[in-house]
């Protein structure tokens, strides 16, 4: 009898262990909300507003995915993660989706066992210095003290850049963007380096943004995008095609203001109809409602709207579309067809 109990216990243990890796979509549906990993606070990308409601460009992706699943853009639990905790949080299942301006690299995709679902911002690493430092090129930074967010690709790029240019520096490792800002402003470091978009966003929150300048060198490619765990392709598809839906919406002229009208009845553009679920079976193919993409777009608008509202030229952050313009306008933002 004892043997039976023993093997019974082992079986139960195996089952409990096995359940943890079941379909993410079912887990999310059962929980009733999406656990989305974001930064601890980077204005424009992900930061709580005065009422404690998270908003920003990356937050918009989280809300779009939640809207695609539940039809409700507020069904999101935002989990703030630092550069060091984000991957552990995703790998352990604490979060379902990581939208935290994370660079898509080979080793993260293969060795760390993650799946990047696309690129929502094409970025590069830059340097910010106070104007009165009198530095006009990153190559003049020999011996400078550099604030760097630890656990990021920028940390590795920085080491490579200074090594290949044969100049020295003193790294000051920092955990979050807020700490980096405080250290930089107090003059404990001469330079702050991270993705150029992050620098622009940080500078926008300074009291005197014009006293600081971004150096011309962009020392790396930083394609930033949302990512999920390896091994659940259905879940990866949902995240990927939600992002693609936002991009396609911009290309097809579907915006948050005209979407109610366009989704009400089939239009004479078949691709818009397929995207918004008034024609074809795309919703059931991906395992969601027919109007999943319509919900995702209605949540915060299409890709272009999200960009303009959160980080575009009309905001204090003031980033130009640049590489992140539609492919039809000379940028890199491109979605495979909805067919």
């Amino acid at each position: 009898m004892k043997k039976t109990v023993f093997f019974g216990a082992l079986t139960v243990a195996a089952l409990v262990a096995g359940v943890a890796s079941a379909a993410t979509l079912d887990d999310v549906k059962a929980r009733g909300s999406l656990n989305c990993g974001v930064t601890t606070g980077l204005v424009g990308f992900a930061a709580p507003d005065a009422n404690g409601v998270w908003e920003g460009f990356d937050v918009g992706i989280c809300r779009a995915v939640a809207a695609a699943i539940f039809g409700d853009p507020t069904a999101v639990e935002f989990v703030p993660t630092t550069g060091q905790t984000r991957f552990t949080a995703l790998a352990s299942g604490e979060i379902d989706l990581l939208a935290r301006n994370t660079t898509w690299t080979f080793s993260r995709d293969t060795d760390l066992k993650f799946e990047f679902v696309g690129v929502n911002y094409y970025d590069g690493q830059g340097f910010m210095v106070p104007k009165d430092l009198g530095v006009s090129s990153a190559k003049d930074l020999d011996g400078a003290t550099v604030c760097i967010q630890t656990g990021t690709t920028t940390e590795l790029n920085l080491a490579d850049f200074f090594r290949t240019n044969n100049i020295s520096y003193e790294p000051v490792p920092i955990e979050t963007n807020a700490e980096a800002q405080q250290q930089y402003l107090s003059g404990a470091c001469d330079v702050y380096t991270t993705d150029a978009s992050g620098l622009a966003a940080t500078r926008a929150t300074f009291e005197a943004p014009n006293d600081h300048t971004l150096l011309p060198e962009i020392i790396s490619k930083e394609p930033l995008g949302p990512l999920v765990r390896h091994g659940d392709s259905e879940w990866g598809d949902i995240a990927r095609w939600t992002l693609n839906a936002l991009v396609s919406a911009e290309e097809l002229g579907v915006t948050s203001s005209n979407i109610a009208e366009l989704a009400a009845a089939p239009t004479n553009n078949p691709e818009v109809n397929r995207l918004l679920g008034t024609e074809g079976q795309l919703g059931s193919m991906i395992g969601l409602d027919a109007n999943w993409a319509a919900n995702a777009i209605a949540a915060g608008g299409n890709y272009g709207e999200l960009f303009e509202k959160n980080i575009g030229e009309s905001t204090p952050i003031g980033l130009a579309r640049g590489l992140n313009a539609m492919w039809t306008e000379g940028g890199l933002i491109y979605s495979p067809p909805f067919r």
Partner: peptide, 17 residues
């Protein structure tokens, strides 16, 4: 202990690590 080890092995395998 067996349960902990087993759980770890299973989850590592599930993650492909």
């Amino acid at each position: 202990i067996g349960w902990l080890v087993n759980n770890t092995v299973q989850n590592l395998a599930a993650l492909g690590k």
